[in-house]
Design a protein around this nucleic acid. Sequence first.
DNA 1: TATATACCCTAGCATTCTACTCAGGTTTAA
DNA 2: TTAAACCTGAGTAGAATGCTAGGGTATATA
Lengths: 165, 165
Amino acid sequence: MRLTTKGRYAVTAMLDLALHADNGPISLAGISKRQEISLSYLEQLFSKLRQNDLVSSVRGPGGGYRLSRPSEEIFVAQIVDAVNESIDATNCGGSGSCRNGATCLTHHLWCDLSEQIHDFLSGISLASLVARKDIQEVSERLDKEEALQQAEANSMQRITTASLG
Amino acid sequence: MRLTTKGRYAVTAMLDLALHADNGPISLAGISKRQEISLSYLEQLFSKLRQNDLVSSVRGPGGGYRLSRPSEEIFVAQIVDAVNESIDATNCGGSGSCRNGATCLTHHLWCDLSEQIHDFLSGISLASLVARKDIQEVSERLDKEEALQQAEANSMQRITTASLG
DNA sequence: TATATACCCTAGCATTCTACTCAGGTTTAA
DNA sequence: TTAAACCTGAGTAGAATGCTAGGGTATATA
């Protein structure tokens, strides 16, 4: 079973995409700033998300990423699967060859657990997350932070330009 | 979230203990043979299980380990916790300081998932595993294998002793 | 009292994975 | 033409896993 920052980052980034779906393609630079995830790392994650047909990309200026289908049809389990390869809790990948080719004593237990986690994460769509009040609140906070940083950057730019001119 | 061979080995070993509870203290050597887990590794795991008061030990010949309480009162979550330290799915240990001191976008989602997994594993006692037919079948197979190996070892011993005498 | 069985403890180590960085591309709107 | 964006592969520090090695210490039995 693997559920680490990798999978969490992927879900966070996809949720950011869903939250800003109305603003056209979303650049990784924007996600990077809002969610504080390294840009290069995001690029690697989105490479896998694209391979798994969860997002589509638009190249060139003004480009970015879009969800490849409505947020109602994208589930957390799919995202974690895409970057982590597996949310399987068994050691044998469910094959039952965990104790030297045969079934180990606790094989069935881990199968049950895997199913449990998978069912849970498969039942949660991006749309259902977007609808949550706690998530909306956090999202608004992050948007404001980003706007503030952008304003500061612009003001620095004006000063620099003025002193150069 | 961590759920790897370490936690699986620990649960397997504890289940082995529960299955052979009637035979007095169980030696790690026996568990090592039946479950094919390295003896030294088992010693490390049992050190943690003992610290967490899940097993008690008997030293000297004929010694070994015993469950520290009835198998009805020992749950899988406790075992995984003992060796893995945490089955928490969040990055912040549940504190909500996951995005630079503040709450990240998906914090609540991972909290929910952690609760889900914990509830599941907390509901499964060693006794309920012992009662499962699929586990009984695997256990019988492993006991037979061990008995067979023991018989072979004894016969080798006789040959060696005979040739020496 | 000697011996062997078993628990106990610490250190180290190869391998794997994570979470990046770096250094280059290529595409395309303006 | 420029620059914003996507795209790709290689490399890397640090942490964790799953061990091994080599010492103990306690105690039942001969």
